[in-house]
């Protein structure tokens, strides 16, 4: 959108916003619209000049902003907010899908559903069914986590480390929950590592309000602290069935040739890559280092001996 057009959109939105927030400080208005105070002042001066044909004092928009606070006295016919654009409606409709995957309270679920139906009536009929957010995984402990984030309190968690196949206990201060790729992640301050740590929420096995007596388990060796010492480069060949694994690796890929389907990745946890190769059921073949390939084969042979 070019600058004058973006400004026109802002001017049209400013008037109803001020009307519903009469006496708002210019500094807050600038923050709300993501522009400088100087730009907002220029906008207000311009609005002051706009009005209905005849443009006498009776037809102009009237507002006051002399003392750093803004009030609209006469909005003329721009008193209502503009309708939501298709993109804005789509974002809200999908946002309500997201909420419905995680809210457990049935009455709030119903409110979200009814609201979504109303929004879908405002969008072009066919488009209403062209966007969807679906997830059948309910986040365990999401209410505890969100409540701890609001109250800035710490949590005790037990956490499943799938690479090591062990459960550790930690005291964490939750900072943000987000979804990235196919995982729900929790960014925290970890008292055990004394650093920021990110945990996969699906692998949090218990989660309680922290008490002063809580002690971190000392069984855990925090993998990330040893990251630089254990970093290893693995070269492997994959087939189409392992494409999801390659996508999951993302920024760990150093080199990839999509024609030969050979990739090199840098990992800090050799156990993690060995288990992933096993899990991909022969669709990933390690080319180097040779001892990693031998280890995968050895584990497969031991597993076979159980049958």
């Amino acid at each position: 959108m070019d600058k004058p057009l973006a400004r026109t959109a802002r001017l049209l939105d400013l008037i109803p916003f001020i009307l519903s927030h009469q006496g708002i400080a210019i500094i807050d208005l600038a923050k709300e619209f993501g522009v400088t105070e100087k730009e907002i002042l220029a906008d207000l001066n311009l609005i002051f000049m706009c009005g209905l044909p005849q443009y006498t004092a009776l037809e102009l928009i009237d507002l006051s902003f002399e003392h750093g606070f803004v009030t609209v006295r006469e909005p003329q016919n721009l008193d209502k907010p503009r309708k939501l654009s298709s993109e804005e409606l789509s974002i809200l409709i999908m946002g309500l899908d997201v909420i419905q995957t995680q809210i457990t309270d049935p009455s709030k679920q119903q409110t979200a559903k009814n609201l979504q139906t109303r929004l879908k009536q405002l969008i072009e009929s066919a488009t209403a069914n062209s966007i969807l957010y679906a997830d059948d995984r309910h986040l365990p402990y999401i209410d505890n986590i969100n409540s701890a984030m609001r109250n800035r309190t710490a949590l005790n968690i037990s956490y499943l480390n799938t690479s090591k196949d062990e459960i550790t206990t930690r005291k964490i201060l939750p900072l943000e929950v987000f979804q990235q790729g196919d995982e729900f992640l929790l960014l925290t301050w970890c008292y055990l590592s004394k650093a920021n740590r990110t945990f996969a929420i699906a692998r949090i096995l218990s989660c309680d309000q922290a008490s002063d007596t809580f002690a971190d388990s000392n069984s855990d060796t925090d993998s990330l602290l040893l990251a630089t010492e254990r970093r290893v480069t693995i070269k492997f060949q994959y087939d189409r069935a392992a494409l999801s694994f390659i996508e999951h690796l993302q920024d760990r890929v150093i080199e990839i040739d999509q024609t030969t389907m050979i990739a090199s990745v840098e990992v800090w946890d050799s156990e993690w890559i060995l288990r992933n190769v096993l899990a991909n059921a022969g669709h990933i073949k390690i080319l180097a280092p040779a001892q990693f390939a031998a280890e995968v084969a050895a584990r497969a042979k031991i597993a076979l001996s159980n049958y």
């Binding site: 939105d13 109803p16 916003f17 009307l19 619209f33 907010p81 997201v98 995680q102 709030k108 999401i142």
Partner: peptide, 20 residues
């Protein structure tokens, strides 16, 4: 912003933040 321009007060006690 458009929704907040409707002049309805948020019920902040009931719904505080996005689940994620």
């Amino acid at each position: 912003r458009k929704l907040r321009s409707l002049g309805i007060e948020n019920d902040a006690t009931n719904y505080v933040d996005a689940p994620f």
